[in-house]
Design a protein around this nucleic acid. Structure first.
Lengths: 158, 158
DNA sequence: GTAATAAATGGAAATGATTTTCATTAACAA
DNA sequence: TTGTTAATGAAAATCATTTCCATTTATTAC
């Protein structure tokens, strides 16, 4: 068995402790669920995944942990317009690559795209610099989403 | 008194009727409130404004009308992360100019900026074209927001 | 104009995601 | 091992938004 499979302390343990938070079974399980998933998950999605491995977990803990993770910048929180938030691990934390979202306003389907990202990022960084200077903001993050009708919903509405 | 002040049917009447919707006192008042305001408003903001001029209005009507307006593309709906949606008239409908938002993640203050917009729009249009071709979406809209700490909140956290 | 029709309305109740409360449990520093 | 304090789960509370339904009103046909 390759040594890479030996489990050391997870990558996020350090940052967690550094912020004064404790490493708990629930938090391990939540981070695992987020790392495993390569898609955005709702709090309930995460609850169900974690519940399978660790049935004692409560939905409250999911929400509380997610709030911490979002504040630490380890997780991004999205609103796709269907009334429940979605969460995904910030890239750099795992194998997921930087992407933006394309959302169908009818069926709420979400496409993650990585095309054109490089140009977008370049422009965003320039803008970010300009904005933080002009408005005296410490900018930490950005959001780009496109909205429209997916193929199926286009057909339906014809 | 200049003739421009004479009230003809409002600019949106045609589109409303064209979609099979009726022109009602409540809807007039809601559109007025949105036109008057040059900032994003919550449903409750709009309710309070409209209520002053037309006390019979119900919050339900505000929500129902906003939904129609958003679906028609006359109004944009935003999520700034404080648990309530904000609405603003789509540009072109009134004197408001195209802008994006810069949001303080701590105090939720929102800055509308128009700087750098031209470059952003140009890139977005290129991206939009590429995305609609590749993913077979009819793209109708986009969203760009920057997040960070405003000057005041930066100081507080030091 | 008037009447007929169906859409629009308001108030109350329901919904549903998220938060709060609080008594109990568990992490971890000493 | 123990004491301190953060973390937890279950239940209750919150609160923006939706739904229900009986009533009103805009619009259309006459």
């Amino acid at each position: 068995m390759p040594r890479g499979n030996c489990k050391g302390p997870a990558w996020w343990h350090g940052r967690f402790k550094g912020c004064g938070y404790r490493i708990t079974t629930g938090r391990e399980a939540i981070l695992d669920a987020l790392t495993m998933a390569d898609r955005h998950l709702s709090a309930e999605d995460i609850y169900m995944k974690v519940h399978a491995a660790y049935p004692a977990i409560g939905l409250t803990t999911i929400y509380r942990t997610l709030e911490i993770l979002v504040n630490m910048g380890l997780v991004f929180k999205f609103d796709f317009g269907d009334g429940r938030a979605r969460y995904e691990l910030a890239e750099g934390s795992n194998r997921s690559t930087h992407h933006h979202h394309l959302i169908c306003t009818s069926c709420k389907r979400v496409v993650d795209y990585t095309d054109f990202i490089d140009d977008e990022i370049e422009l965003l960084q320039k803008t970010e610099k300009g904005l933080s200077d002009k408005y005296n903001f410490a900018i930490t993050n950005h959001l780009i989403q496109f909205y429209g009708l997916c193929g199926k919903c286009k057909k339906k509405k014809q």
